[in-house]
Amino acid sequence: MALLATTISLTESASAAAVRIGVFNANTLLANDDGSTGAVGIGFSIDFFGSTYSDLFVNNNGNVTFNAALGTFTPFNLLSTSTPIIAPFFADVDTRGSGSGIVSFGTGTVDGRTAFGVNWPGVGYFSNQTDKLNTFQLVLIDRSDTGAGNFDIEFNYDQIQWETGDASSGDNGLGGFSARVGLVA
């Protein structure tokens, strides 16, 4: 079963950030290109289209996966994969450049509910580029109060300035094989 998000809401506000600030930063993924964590506990179990997961892999390239880490940097058609993935911005993120933020993740609380989130704060693109930076976030919120394994997914965007890394046929962060957004079970 696959589902692809087709709408992205890009928001910019002078009074409030579009991402949840100050949470989900207990752990960091060191500056890297195409790296991932090992299996990380979510803090609750989710039923992702019939499969139950209590951990996931945080991938530098703007996504999380459930069965294994994903180092792929050129985004592929999410409808053509069997890899369970949640991708707020699947593209060639490169956090090695001076001025790029690094990926952070961890558990927290959203509206009194247990949550797990991943932050990509002011991240650059391949290769070591920081002339354009993206800030986005993934939040998984425990909704077991409505049924076993139920959860909400938030894709939060504060700033999107680039869409493609140089190795994905991009030029100056644009064109080529552009970022993918969505989820697949």
Rank of each mutant, 00 (worst) to 15 (best):
E12D: 09
A14L: 15
S15E: 14
A17S: 15
A18H: 05
R20L: 13
V23E: 15
F24N: 02
N25R: 09
N27A: 14
N32W: 00
D33R: 09
G35T: 05
S36Q: 12
T37I: 05
G38Y: 09
G38W: 11
A39V: 12
V40T: 05
V40F: 05
F44L: 08
D47A: 09
F48C: 01
F49W: 07
Y53F: 14
F57H: 00
V58W: 02
V64Q: 00
A69E: 12
F73L: 13
P75V: 11
L78S: 07
S82V: 14
I86Y: 00
A87H: 01
P88W: 06
F90V: 03
D92C: 07
V93I: 15
D94S: 09
R96L: 13
G101S: 07
G101I: 05
V103N: 00
V103P: 01
F105A: 00
G106C: 03
T109A: 11
T109K: 10
D111S: 15
T114G: 12
A115Q: 10
N119K: 10
Y125H: 13
F126C: 09
S127Q: 13
Q129K: 13
T130S: 05
L138P: 00
D142G: 01
A148M: 10
G149P: 11
F151R: 10
D158L: 01
Q159F: 08
I160P: 08
I160N: 07
Q161D: 10
W162V: 04
T164Y: 07
D166C: 09
G173I: 02
G182W: 06
L183M: 15
V184M: 11
A185E: 12
